[in-house]
């Protein structure tokens, strides 16, 4: 009897020790996040129930009016569709490309660090430079892409004003700018795979291809999970490129406007912060649903050692 009590006490003591360590270690991050981010998020959700006054004063409570207006606003639904389509275009392509590049750069290739640096460059280029280059590439009259198309005997494409293609043009920029990010992450985790694993599989007589699918890919899954969660979230929040390339006056605006762009216009341009906030809440709900599904699926395909 005594014995049992004492062991139980012992267990709970080491448990408590672990609890304390856990709380202590997450404390700085959690306190920071709560003040810097979580409180503003709840303020935003709260604000979505108001017709916002100027400069944070004179907000009038309107209940769910902003949401009712949002559900009847065709532009919001365009933006939902555009945002999802953009994500669907960017995430699979960029992830596949970056896996290929990371694996190649992890192998026996000359000039590795040269290539790594080059693939990372798009992430560093200033937005002004990026937009300028792509505007030139996409220019309908004398852009490089149309020049090549014409040479091949194809017709010119109005890359940024044709409603049918503008979103694809934007997605290409999105893929181009995110490949380096994914590549760095995947490379980092490729480097963490112990060599012994490969040696063992070599002894078993596995080919390079088999090695990739049997050793590399399964061990990459934790990072792949991270990459897919974060690229989906990032893609769902697409704003900069569209904002810089597509004006409200652009005929392709309806077909490219994203949820964050709509939120930005309403909150910061039209100063309708209440309505802008309700758009953010819609975006949040969509992202949460997607992330929840991913977390549920995590157990099915992600292998932790």
């Amino acid at each position: 009897m005594n014995n049992i009590i004492s062991t139980r006490k012992k267990v709970s003591k080491s448990k408590l020790n672990m609890w304390l360590w856990g709380w202590f270690m997450v404390a700085p991050t959690m306190i920071g996040l709560i003040f810097l981010n979580i409180i503003p998020i709840f303020q935003t959700i709260y604000l979505s129930l108001f017709k916002s006054g100027d400069f944070g004063r004179g907000n009038i409570f309107v209940g769910f009016d902003n949401y009712i207006r949002m559900f009847g606003d065709a532009q919001v639904w365009h933006a939902v569709a555009n945002t999802l389509l953009y994500t669907l275009l960017v995430v699979p392509f960029s992830v596949v490309f970056s896996i290929i590049i990371a694996v190649l750069l992890n192998g026996k290739i000359k000039g590795k660090s040269f290539f790594r640096t080059i693939y990372f460059i798009p992430m560093m280029a200033a937005p002004a430079a990026v937009t300028m280059v792509w505007r030139w590439l996409y220019n309908p009259q004398f852009g490089l892409i149309n020049y090549v198309l014409n040479r091949l005997g194809l017709d010119s494409v109005k890359w940024t004003t044709d409603p049918q293609v503008a979103l694809i043009a934007i997605s290409i920029i999105g893929i181009w700018s995110i490949v380096g990010y994914n590549m760095v992450l995947l490379l980092a985790s490729l480097k963490e795979i112990p060599r012994d694993y490969y040696e063992a599989s070599e002894i078993d007589g596995a080919s390079k291809m088999q090695q990739f699918f049997v050793v590399t890919l399964p061990l990459l899954t934790p990072t792949l999970f991270f990459v897919s969660v974060t690229t989906i979230i990032q893609s769902m929040q697409v704003f900069d490129v569209i904002y810089m390339m597509i004006d409200v006056a652009n005929p392709a605006y309806e077909n490219t406007v994203s949820l964050v762009y709509l939120f930005y216009n309403n909150s910061f341009k039209y100063m309708d912060k209440g309505y802008g906030s309700s758009i953010v809440v819609l975006l949040l709900v969509i992202i949460m649903i997607i992330t929840y599904i991913q977390l549920k699926a995590e157990k099915k395909w992600v292998n932790y050692m």
Binding site: P40, I41, I233, M236, Y264, S267, V280, I287, T291
Partner: peptide, 10 residues
Amino acid sequence: LFQMMVPTQI
């Protein structure tokens, strides 16, 4: 995770 889902502009 929740923090990451929110566009930084807010």
